[in-house]
Each structure stands twice: as structure tokens, then as C-alpha cells.
């Protein structure tokens, strides 16, 4: 194999390999790759920066959304409370009015009853007087003696 003919292939190849590699490393790769690396890093950081910005914006939006929902819930709750309060107040005032009216009606009723009782008593009194007068007149016609009205009244009361 010519590869193992070192007397012939060793130094020429090693020398030119090191020349080639030195030129490649210092003259080509070191001049070009850093430029490429810079661009790649810039791209990476710009992409990750954009992603971070997007994430931050999304988070802010989420916060606003959560706040909106919380506020909506709070105001809904408030409205519900206001409605319940108003309802309770209305119910209370209705009850008060009803009870007041009820009391008034009762008072009027008892007054009327009193009046009726008075009227009945008065009527009863008048009836008794009339009966006594009638009895007086009857007695006067039958006996010619006019009895006293008070005695007639007493007799009528005793007869009743």
C-alpha cells in the first residue's frame, strides 16, 4: 500500500496538511464564521426577544381580562344587592301601609259599632218610654186614674 511508504509520503503530506489547515483555520474560518455566528446570535436573540415581548403582552392582556371579569362580577353583585334591597324596602313599606290602613279601618269599625250600640240603647230607652206612656194611657182609660209615669216605667221594666 502506498500509504505505508512513509519515506515517500510522510513529510510532503504532513507539511502541506499543516499549511492547508493553518490557512483554513486562520485565513478562512476565523474570518468568516464569527460574522455568521453574530448574525445567528442576533437572529436568535431577536426571535427570543419577540417571543418574550409577545408573552409579556399576552400576560398584560390576560390581566386586563381578569380585571374586567372581576369588575363585571362585582358590579353584577352590586346590582343584585340593590335590587334585593329595593324589593325588601318596598315590601316593608307596603306592610306598614297595610297595617296602618288596617288599624284605621278597625278604629272606624269600632266607632261605628259604638254608635250602633248607642243608637240601640237610645232606641231601647225610647221604646220603654213609649211603652210606659202607652201603659199610662191604657190605665187612664180603663180606670180614669192617671198613674204616674215613673210607676208605669217600673212596671214596664218589670214586665220586659
Amino acid at each position: 500500500m502506498p500509504q505505508f511508504d512513509f519515506a515517500h509520503v510522510l513529510w510532503p503530506q504532513l507539511a502541506w496538511l499543516f499549511v492547508t489547515f493553518a490557512v483554513l483555520y486562520f485565513g478562512v474560518v476565523r474570518l468568516t464564521l464569527p460574522k455568521l455566528g453574530k448574525v445567528m446570535d442576533a437572529r436568535e436573540s431577536s426571535i427570543s426577544g419577540n417571543l418574550a415581548t409577545a408573552q409579556a403582552v399576552k400576560q398584560a392582556a390576560d390581566e386586563i381580562d381578569a380585571r374586567y371579569h372581576a369588575e363585571m362580577n362585582a358590579s353584577r353583585e352590586e346590582a343584585r344587592k340593590a335590587i334585593a334591597d329595593a324589593k325588601a324596602k318596598a315590601a316593608k313599606s307596603t306592610e306598614a301601609k297595610l297595617s296602618k290602613a288596617g288599624a284605621k279601618a278597625e278604629a272606624a269599625l269600632s266607632e261605628a259599632e259604638d254608635r250602633i250600640a248607642q243608637a240601640v240603647a237610645k232606641a231601647e230607652g225610647a221604646l220603654a218610654t213609649a211603652a210606659a206612656e202607652n201603659a199610662q194611657a191604657i190605665v187612664a182609660r180603663l180606670t180614669g186614674v192617671e198613674p204616674k209615669l215613673d210607676a208605669a216605667k217600673a212596671v214596664v221594666a218589670a214586665q220586659a
Binding site: 513529510w11 503530506q13 492547508t20 468568516t32
Partner: peptide, 26 residues
């Protein structure tokens, strides 16, 4: 003995190809 051989020549061709690739690319 550091003669320029066909091996050296193809190393140089490889070097040239890589150089073109990298210099044009960047």
C-alpha cells in the same frame, strides 16, 4: 522533502472549495 504532490493539490482544491463556500456564504 516537502514536494508539492497530487495529495497537496487536492488538499488545495478542498481548501479552495471550502473558502469559496464560506466567503460567498458570509
Amino acid at each position: 522533502d516537502v514536494s508539492f504532490t497530487n495529495s497537496s493539490l487536492w488538499m488545495m482544491i478542498a481548501l479552495a472549495a471550502v473558502s469559496i463556500f464560506l466567503f460567498v456564504g458570509t
